[in-house]
Amino acid sequence: MNDTSPMGVPATGLAQSAISARGLVKTFGKLRAVDGIDLDVPRGIIFAILGPNGAGKTTLMRMLATLSRPDAGSATVMGHDLVQAPHEVRAAIAMTGQFASLDEDLTGRENLVLLARLWGFRGRAAKARADDLLAAFGLSEAATKQVRDYSGGMRRRLDIAASLIVTPGVLFLDEPTTGLDPNARKDVWGMIRGLAEAGVTILLTTQYLEEADQLAARIAVIDHGRKIAEGTSRELKAATGSGFLHVALADVARLDQAASILERRLEHPVQRSAEGAELSVLAGTAKAANEALADLVAAGIELSDFSMGQPSLEEVFFALTGQPSLGESRKDDKP
């Protein structure tokens, strides 16, 4: 799963890649925000870069979008070299940043007309393009409202519409659903799937395992500026091992005790669920799991539920990084 070549694309077929990067590095002072990343993104798929805050996702994406110059390494985007031909790269991509890149004082329609004119649509053609995009993204009624009055979900839709003035070879989405409520998130997911079905290559970053699992055909897991794994969601789970024991306790107060018993018996780190009521640990075999459960019963710890099964992506991440959760932020991510 650490194989960096994309599925079925031989090294000679890189011209077919939407993105091909080798050894990309970006440092901020002493911090190596991106520390030698190789990436091959085939055309026509959704590719997710998954990692916690501060892992270097945004920095990597900003380099690929020509917003930040790599300190070492090279990359091509839609066949154009990032450093030699940034103008050509820009003509082939569109980027929707983490923070809405819209002019809040202007109306939704004016924002799109502005960008359409910058792309070279003139007069009436620019307005027609803006109206078509507004209609396709369900924003026609809000067209003449100032963006400052838009909801978070509407902003996100307009922001993505603004990236489709000219159909990009690659669409970059930096944490497209961060800060959205669950309904708006589902909305954006549907939109991203729709774009992929329409044939747009999408590279997105996310700190949500569920998002990568739901959307992406391929996932690269990044931590501390390095790629620690890559594959399909299924491959990542399979590589972590399928014999995961999940345990829920009747008495949450005994969680610490239960965790130490499981860890002693199974000799693998125990992970707590985000809600804190469940423990997960790699057991390997059913026999080992059985023995561990017997230990818990012998210690008088009552279980409300237990199961054996595939790891969740969260457990995959834990197995790869030794870090319990993706939600905690490390404050060293430069924008």
């Binding site: 070279g120 053609a125 078509d132 396709a136 839709r157 489709l164 079905e197 329409a198 044939g199 747009v200």
Partner: peptide
């Protein structure tokens, strides 16, 4: 709210010439 057909139609519009 968003349908693939209208997206595909949007893609069919030709790229304009680069402005000055």
């Amino acid at each position: 709210m968003i349908d693939t057909t209208s997206l595909q139609r949007l893609q069919r519009v030709a790229r304009p010439r680069s402005p000055s």
